[in-house]
């Protein structure tokens, strides 16, 4: 089998292998998209020319669709432009600034970074998707094991793995929208052939198992990120809201609500101390929210990397 992307491939599989090789080192999601596009096109071409020999069809394809090397070049060129045009606001976090002022700006600059807000949204959302993935995978696995002694056990397992791949694609779209980590836009071409061969390929595919692991882990990770997001956003908003109410009360306005309390007893403070304390509470609230946004940005990136590692074929 010739692996040189500049020579004429002799089968669809060989074409795809050459294309994969020509794209080596590119983004895994881009490779997956390119392979899927090529396979769809080549199979359609083969279906349209079913009365011709495979060799002559492949020769025609090389002339019309292009050799793997040409196609790879087109993807690398176009995708680069797309990413440059659609890239989010320049990533200030990556600029190397070590001064205290720079660190402070970076800490509070998180408000201007759209990715930190979307990542914050992803944290509670992860619980919902986590519950969904976990229940589907657990049900699918137990039914597959339970049905294994019957004839329908294996076909059921194939269908179940197919479902987890669709879910992985959906998760990828969600992760890309929220964190900016590039994920596949199409499903990876699955192995063709008799169902026994497909089953074998499925068992041997590392990604089948990492996808299942990811979807099982999605629940505990979702619970953790939901808890952190809800706890700290409530704490921050509570401190800010309570601070505002206390400030208005300290200024003599008739605002409904309990006086701000430290512990269980209401402190009787002078008017200046009461104002300072409420401002302190507002400041603390802002600090907690800012810290949460920073944390969301970091976990968002980690979520994206983890999803890519587990869900996208290397």
């Amino acid at each position: 089998m010739s692996a040189d992307p500049n020579t004429l491939p002799r089968s669809i599989d060989e074409y795809l292998t050459q294309l994969r090789r020509a794209l080596a080192g590119a983004d895994a999601a881009l490779i997956q998209d390119a392979l899927s596009d090529a396979e769809t096109h080549l199979r359609a071409e083969f279906a349209a020319r079913s009365n011709e020999s495979e060799a002559s069809v492949l020769e025609a394809i090389a002339a019309s669709y292009g050799l793997p090397a040409d196609v790879a070049a087109a993807y690398l060129e176009t995708d680069y432009k797309v990413q440059a045009a659609l890239a989010p606001t320049p990533d200030r976090a990556n600029s190397t600034r070590s001064s205290k002022r720079g660190l402070l700006r970076e800490f509070f600059g998180v408000y201007g970074d759209i990715r930190s807000w979307t990542s914050l949204l992803l944290m509670p959302l992860s619980l919902v998707t986590g519950v969904l993935y976990f229940s589907i995978v657990l049900t699918g696995l137990s039914l597959s094991l339970g049905l294994a002694i019957l004839i329908i056990g294996l076909p059921f397992f194939i269908a179940f793995v197919g479902l987890t791949r669709i879910l992985a694609l959906v998760e990828g779209r969600l992760v890309e929208a929220m964190t900016g980590e590039r994920m596949p836009r199409r499903n990876r071409p699955s192995h063709r052939g008799r169902w026994t061969e497909r089953l074998g390929a499925m068992f041997k595919d590392r990604r089948t198992w990492t996808t299942l692991a990811y979807q099982l882990l999605a629940l505990p990770l979702g619970v953790a990120s939901f808890t952190v997001a809800v706890t700290f956003s409530t704490l921050g908003i509570g401190l800010m809201g309570g601070g505002v109410v206390a400030l208005l009360q300290a200024l003599g306005l008739d605002v409904p609500g309990e006086a701000l309390q430290w512990g269980t007893e209401t402190l009787e403070l002078g008017p200046v101390a009461a104002v300072l304390r409420s401002i302190g509470a507002i400041g603390l609230g802002i600090l907690v929210l800012t810290a949460l946004l920073n944390l969301a940005r970091v976990t968002g990136r980690a979520h994206g990397r983890f999803a890519k590692l587990m869900l996208v074929a290397a």
């Binding site: 596009d37 090529a38 096109h41 087109a74 993807y75 176009t78 797309v82 045009a85």
Partner: peptide, 16 residues
Amino acid sequence: FKEGTIYPVLRSLAAS
């Protein structure tokens, strides 16, 4: 142009 080159362009048009 080769047909293979229209797919990435379609993708980038959709992304825009």
